[in-house]
Write a protein that binds this DNA or RNA. Structure first.
Length: 210
DNA sequence: TTATTGATGGTCT
DNA sequence: GACCATCAATAAG
């Protein structure tokens, strides 16, 4: 893994524009590797995404949007760039970014793992509530853990992640111009349907990948 | 180091 | 009532 992933290129942080998310989830997923997820506020938290999965809506049997609109998944059919948060296995919140190309389509990218960069002590405290033995690697090396570290739950369903005039972001996706050159593509994990499709992206040889 | 299992509750049929 | 886009503790090697 490129050591540059471990540092924040603070001077070059640029929020993503809404257009970024108006594309096929597969393209968005690839491009999200190396990007920053920021919890804004007085004590910001910043992590660098190193593992994501694309869920491609109606054409993807593993996608929550496969069978059409429900109360839970409706955000996936709406404006790209919003957070789709859902509860899984009776215990964990999982965070996705809504993205799709055309109106009337649906899709999302699951944020699976990240490298903690800023606010590590705060993230450690948040994770300790669930696992007192948490290590720096187990801070954010899985989709449930990532949400615990960043404090993401159902109250953040529908939050917008790009910049928009007059909107105050709680979470933000941004680039610090760290170019990923060691991204690998594999089958998605933790699912039964369509797990053979290579729609998971992660950084090669990264300790935080799940 | 890998494999296995129990905890746990909303969503959908 | 079955299904889960998970995790942590344990056991075995």
């Amino acid at each position: 893994m490129d050591q540059k992933y471990l540092q924040l290129n603070e001077d070059k942080i640029k929020p993503l524009k809404p257009e970024f998310f108006y594309r096929d989830p597969l393209d968005v997923a690839y491009d999200l590797i190396g990007k920053l997820l920021i919890k804004t506020g007085q004590n910001p938290l910043i992590v660098r995404l190193v593992e994501v999965e694309a869920y491609r809506g109606k054409k993807d049997p593993a996608s929550h949007a496969y069978k059409g609109v429900t109360k839970r998944n409706k955000i996936m059919f709406q404006e790209p760039g919003h957070l789709y948060v859902y509860f899984n296995y009776g215990m964990y919140w999982l965070a996705n970014v809504v993205c799709h190309k055309e109106k009337n389509e649906a899709g999302a990218v699951l944020l699976r793992a990240a490298i903690p960069l800023i606010g590590i002590e705060q993230m450690r405290q948040a994770r300790r509530k669930h696992n007192p033995k948490v290590t720096i690697k187990s801070l954010t090396n899985g989709p449930g853990k990532l949400c615990q570290a960043l404090g993401i739950d159902k109250s953040h369903y529908g939050e917008f992640l790009a910049v928009k005039k007059g909107y105050e972001n709680k979470f933000l996706l941004a680039s610090d111009c760290t170019k990923p050159k060691d991204v690998i593509q594999t089958g998605r994990i933790g699912i039964k349907k369509a797990s053979d499709l290579p729609w998971r992206f992660c950084v090669k040889d990264c300790e935080w990948v799940s």
